[in-house]
Amino acid sequence: MGNSKKVILLGNFGVGKTSLVRQYVFRKFSDDYMTTIGVRIDKKMVAVNGQEVSMIIWDVAGESTHQKIPNSYKLGAHGIIYVIDVLRPSTYLSIEKEISSLEDLLPNVPIVKVANKIDLLTEKERIEIVNNLPLNDYVLCSAKNGSNVEDAFNKLAESLI
């Protein structure tokens, strides 16, 4: 116990939350889509500014809105990673509303927005899509090739200290 932080991964189903955790914790990736039900918990120790932090990551089954997720999952969360799929507008069309509702439910809890699957875009498409995303300050990630995955979790870890 001690410096443990509960981090929950939220976002629509199929956006790659489980893949991000697998890449971050185990450095593994599989192209097969295996849906998550309920929640799966993993743990990773990270050093932030010379301080050791135990990130207990709750990989929560994807839903179109966090309101469909049991409140107990969110209770006591220290940080949130909200994941979208850059290829599916349905995963980010309501992101403004979702983030705002999460901020109301969990005031002062940092939220990192992650745009996943950028490996599937060309540079031109990436610029075009990113420019049209609602909100800004996304971490552009690829769970498949690991690009920026560590950065996304580290960004959240830094804000937890």
């Binding site: 116990m1 443990s4 509960k6 309920g38 918990i41 209770l75």
Partner: peptide, 21 residues
């Protein structure tokens, strides 16, 4: 990860977590 939640739980109260892998 829920130690603080348990500490905050009032006597006689309960908290449920469905579908844990």
């Amino acid at each position: 990860s829920i130690s603080q939640t348990l500490a905050d739980l009032k006597l006689g109260a309960e908290v449920a977590y469905p579908c844990i892998n």
